[in-house]
Design a protein around this nucleic acid. Structure first.
Lengths: 195, 195
DNA sequence: ACGGTTTCTTAAGTTAGCTTAAGTTTATTC
DNA sequence: GAATAAACTTAAGCTAACTTAAGAAACCGT
């Protein structure tokens, strides 16, 4: 995809929440970086530090955590026009304990933290935009804590299918299981039972 | 407790993360409100909107969610010098779906949202302080999602005891169970088994 | 189009955590 | 300081979800 088109997509996305001026768009454009990941490639891994915000132009990604037993726990999934990151590492500046991985060949627009924070002073709408995004990340997490505590696996699976309608088909089932917090075998069993 | 002493506590707490000037402290002081809650009294309930930040001067509080089966799920616990709120409602301005309740007779300092946001412009250290607090709230939530997915109930109970050392003794066990996501009976069983 | 890898399914046996119910201890209140 | 309410324990029976293992299906890559 042309870089111009990629930028247009990002601007359109941001304009859903705030209103960017012409000069705001120009200044924003000047800090953007473009990156392509092939399937299974890692953007972030434990020990590295997240120093960009990452917008998915095309493709699919996930962030996951590997526990002491080697079990994967998917925290976030995203496709076109979602943001993907380890916000913990990005916000705190500390080393990540997570993996952020491409699930397909993926095109990203990256906003480096230093430049972005500088940009906040000149284009406050961008600052507002990310404040809104981080708030909704918080809300989504809280939603998930509540859901995990009050619903059984099949209810959570149904919620997932509603929330991530377009994503379900593109992501292997064992990753969905690791997002829901069940084994792939058990998810397979649930699907059969309720079909 | 004297109001002067309460303010001193709050200022001392904020000064752990940022540095307030004399005039900053003065401006901050001018927007504070003071509230006392008796045991079991609700600060926020479903339908109401959180429009203050709440600092616990003395006492203990929790936030919890009531699911469709009438089951309580405790999301946050706090004692002296913790902040307690439904951040979702505060940040979004939408009606809360949670309860925020005093577990003992509790003294709060409240910072009304409108005044606080105005204050941000004049005392940016206060703005920084709350940005830091909201980030750590996010991090704590993510920690919890990971923990709930990768640890069994007894491990989570031990984590809880480490993280909330001083709180455990002051909070009924059934509330701790509702925080951990297990029944009170099962927590009781675990405690006996490992004692 | 074939061979290998990755993903998904099925099923039997097991376990962590739940439900119900009754009894006991600990707090509150008047 | 009794009376009542709130919180905690114990135990039996149950169920959701896990483990292990093996086979089937889908999906690459050359």
């Amino acid at each position: 995809m042309e870089i111009e088109d990629q930028i247009a997509l990002l601007v359109e996305h941001i304009n859903k929440d705030v209103t960017l001026s012409k000069t705001g768009i120009k200044k924003l454009s000047s800090i953007l970086q473009f990156k392509t990941l092939h399937k299974k490639e890692l953007l972030i891994e434990p020990g590295s530090t997240a120093n960009t915000m990452n917008f998915i132009v095309q493709g699919a990604m996930r962030s996951y955590y590997l526990d002491e037993n080697g079990q994967e726990h998917t925290l976030q999934l995203g496709i076109e026009q979602w943001w993907i990151n380890d916000l913990y590492s990005y916000l705190s500046g500390k080393a990540s304990r997570m993996y952020v991985q491409a699930l397909e060949r993926t095109w990203l627009i990256q906003l480096p933290k230093t430049e972005l924070e500088e940009l906040y002073h000149h284009v406050p709408e961008v600052s507002n935009f990310f404040r809104i995004k981080i708030q909704s990340a918080y809300v989504a997490l809280q939603e998930r804590v509540i859901e995990n505590m009050s619903e059984d696996a099949y209810e959570r699976y149904n919620n997932f299918r509603n929330t991530y309608k377009n994503i379900e088909q593109r992501v292997p089932q064992y990753i969905i299981a690791s997002y829901l917090g069940v084994t792939p075998e058990f998810l397979s069993y649930l699907r059969k039972k309720h079909s």
